[in-house]
Simulated scan of single mutants.
Amino acid sequence: MRGQVLGVDRVSGDGQIAGDDGRRYRFRPEDWGDKTGPSVGAQVDFETSETRALSIYRVPATTPVTLHEAPQQPSRQRSPRNKVAAALLAFFVGVFGVHRFYLGRTGSGIAMLVLTCTFFGLVVTGLWAFIDFIRYLVMPEDEFDARYNRS
């Protein structure tokens, strides 16, 4: 049967092949019959045993996609985060960690939210939010983008 390699675990070497019959077959490194080994996108010829691919050989004259060249999933488009918006959130509702959630820093946002439950924690998060407010305003735009608007 013929098919295409869907994925390969880099550590174990286990992977999956989509057969031309529409089914998926699992394989292990010892199931490969050629020296090249598996790579994502490679066209292969193999024998089957239930859901297992055996005696796998690469089909000649096909160019496989190496793991670092594998087609990537389309990324979710999201609007870039704005440093002025983050600064204003830090100034007005920063004690609750809202600006941290806005910037994708969920862990520290939760920490600020929990700390706010006590008087001492309220003082700490108030100071923390004010420092973040100042820091966002003085931070260069390219540094802000590098930290908070990564794809």
Rank of each mutant, 00 (worst) to 15 (best):
G37I: 02
T63R: 12
A70G: 12
R58E: 03
T36G: 14
S39C: 06
P29H: 06
P60L: 03
D9P: 01
A53F: 08
R58C: 03
P74M: 09
D34N: 13
V59I: 13
A70Y: 07
T62W: 02
T36Y: 12
F27D: 01
D31A: 13
R26S: 14
D34C: 05
V11Q: 15
R10D: 15
T36A: 12
P38H: 03
R78S: 06
T51M: 14
S49F: 09
R10Y: 10
T63E: 14
V59M: 09
T51C: 03
V8D: 13
V65K: 08
G37P: 03
V84D: 15
G15A: 08
P80R: 11
R26Y: 15
V40L: 04
P29E: 11
R52N: 09
E50S: 11
R24S: 15
R58G: 00
Q16M: 08
A53M: 07
R10E: 15
R28I: 01
E50P: 05
D14C: 05
V59R: 05
V65N: 09
E30T: 11
P29A: 09
E47H: 08
R28K: 13
R76F: 02
F27P: 06
R23Q: 15
R81F: 12
P29T: 08
L67V: 13
Q73L: 14
P71E: 09
G41E: 00
A53Q: 10
G22Q: 09
E30I: 11
Q77P: 02
Q77S: 07
E69W: 02
S49T: 05
T48I: 09
H68G: 04
D31M: 03
D14L: 10
L6H: 02
P60I: 01
E69L: 07
R28T: 10
K35Q: 14
S75R: 08
Q4S: 08
A18I: 01
V11G: 09
D31Y: 02
T48N: 04
L67T: 13
P38K: 03
S39P: 04
Q43R: 09
G37T: 00
D9Y: 03
R78V: 12
R78G: 05
Y57K: 11
E30V: 07
F46N: 11
G41F: 02
D34I: 01
S39K: 01
V40Q: 12
P80Q: 10
V59H: 02
Q16L: 13
R28G: 08
A53I: 05
R28A: 14
Q43L: 03
R58P: 01
G13D: 12
Q73I: 11
R78C: 02
G7N: 14
E50M: 11
G13H: 06
G41W: 00
W32R: 01
T62A: 06
P38S: 06
G15Q: 07
R81Q: 15
T36F: 11
G41P: 01
S12N: 13
T51D: 15
E69P: 03
T51A: 10
F46Y: 14
H68W: 12
P38T: 05
G37R: 00
R81M: 14
T51F: 12
G13V: 06
P71A: 07
I56S: 04
F27Y: 07
S75V: 12
E50K: 05
P64D: 07
A42P: 06
S75F: 05
S39D: 05
V44K: 00
S49M: 10
R26M: 09
G19S: 08
T62D: 07
D45I: 01
D9M: 04
L67Y: 10
G37L: 00
K35M: 11
R52M: 05
T63C: 03
S75K: 09
R76V: 04
